[in-house]
């Protein structure tokens, strides 16, 4: 358990650094801003309690906020998906329930389960984030396009991480 904890702490730091030092500086035509740091929320163990997931989401967003001078915008978006994630997972649960050690990954659940799961949370996070950033609906099409394009790139990066770095963990 403690080694698992350490692993998640390490991944928290790594994803935040990648986000603020590399992905925040990616500026593709002013429209595409990927936020792959939310991968941390996607891959938390399924058995984790709802309150701990919420807290992880909140502090993850807050850390990125501190580095991007965005107040609490990231935290608002990550807290929302951290709240919604267990609801989605519960609704999708197989008849016999989940294994205790289950982690939402492509290796364990297959790509046809993972893509809708990740896409829903990514789009939710990006839409909330970009709307909060613009703080009005007048530029709606501009904001919407930004959210869609950025979500696409974030998905590509997350699936890439899944295939490259996630080892078989099923016991």
């Amino acid at each position: 358990m403690t080694t698992d904890m350490l692993k998640y702490v390490w991944q928290f730091i790594l994803l935040c650094l990648l986000q603020v030092l590399i992905f925040n500086n990616l500026n593709l035509g002013g429209y595409v801003n990927p936020f792959p740091y939310i991968y941390l929320i996607l891959m938390l163990p399924i058995s984790m309690g709802r309150i701990p997931v919420l807290l992880v989401g909140f502090f993850l967003g807050l850390t990125v906020d501190v580095f991007s001078n965005t107040g609490g915008m990231h935290a608002a978006a990550t807290t929302l998906i951290a709240f919604y994630r267990p609801l989605y997972i519960k609704a999708q649960s197989p008849r016999e329930g989940y294994e205790l050690t289950a982690v939402p990954s492509i290796k364990q659940f297959g790509i046809t389960w993972f893509i809708p799961y990740a896409l829903l949370l990514v789009v939710m996070h990006h839409s909330v984030l970009f709307l909060l950033e613009a703080f009005r609906f007048s530029d709606f099409f501009h904001t919407f396009l930004k959210a869609v394009l950025s979500s696409g790139l974030t998905m590509v990066i997350i699936v890439f991480i899944e295939y490259m770095f996630v080892n078989e963990r099923r016991r």
């Binding site: 709802r50 309150i51 919420l54 807290l55 807050l62 609490g72 915008m73 807290t79 929302l80 709240f83």
Partner: peptide, 18 residues
């Protein structure tokens, strides 16, 4: 209680944004 914790955290976020 999960929902209320969620609400509390979101309120904190909006306070930070403002």
């Amino acid at each position: 209680h999960v929902f209320f914790v969620f609400l509390l955290l979101e309120l904190a976020c909006f306070w930070l944004i403002v």
